[in-house]
């Protein structure tokens, strides 16, 4: 009986891990989309209302979804402390790394954008954001592709690895 419960626990744990990894694949394209949406909001704040960066970031955070909103809040906070936009974005990216399904490529796009934020006129600010958006849409496509390939795979893999362990241990 105890062995049976143990085996069930092993399978459940392994399946859980598999589903967790699969969930990351599933969430990533969605979070990239929400990041792109947020950058469009930021672009509007800069282009039409010329809102200064700290306030523009707060407003963007208000209109963004969960992990992405946190990124903009952190950036705004660091900017208020007197850091440069590049430093603030680096801090924000570090937060995202731990808290979201976002990975290297999209975070690099963000870091690169951070280096240009605020230090030029309106027109070139918009060009920088547009370039980042274009870059992100490629990254998003790749993320979707990876989701198609890997989401199911990791769900099965988790379960099957659990079964394998059980078979070996029994």
């Amino acid at each position: 009986m105890i062995r049976f419960i143990g085996a069930a626990l092993v399978v459940a744990a392994s399946t859980g891990i598999g589903f967790r990894i699969a969930a990351d694949y599933r969430h990533r394209p969605r979070q990239i989309r929400s990041l792109m949406h947020a950058l469009r909001v930021l672009r509007t704040e800069i282009d039409f209302t010329l809102t200064p960066l700290p306030l523009a970031l707060v407003r963007t955070a208000e209109r963004a979804d969960a992990p992405v909103a946190h990124f903009f809040t952190v950036c705004a906070e660091h900017l208020e402390l007197g850091e440069t936009p590049a430093e603030a974005v680096t801090a924000g990216v570090a937060e995202l790394r731990g808290r979201s399904a976002l990975r290297g490529p999209e975070l690099e796009v963000l870091s690169a954008l951070g280096g240009t934020l605020g230090n030029s006129d309106r027109q070139s600010q918009c060009q920088h954001i547009d370039a980042a958006l274009m870059h992100l849409s490629h990254v998003e496509e790749e993320a979707r592709e990876a989701q198609r390939r890997n989401e199911r795979l990791w769900q099965y893999l988790g379960f099957l690895f659990g079964l394998l362990l059980v078979v070996l241990l029994y």
Binding site: L50, P52, L53, A56
Partner: peptide, 9 residues
Amino acid sequence: TQASLYAVE
């Protein structure tokens, strides 16, 4: 400039 040159053009 609150780190926003575009806002004070």
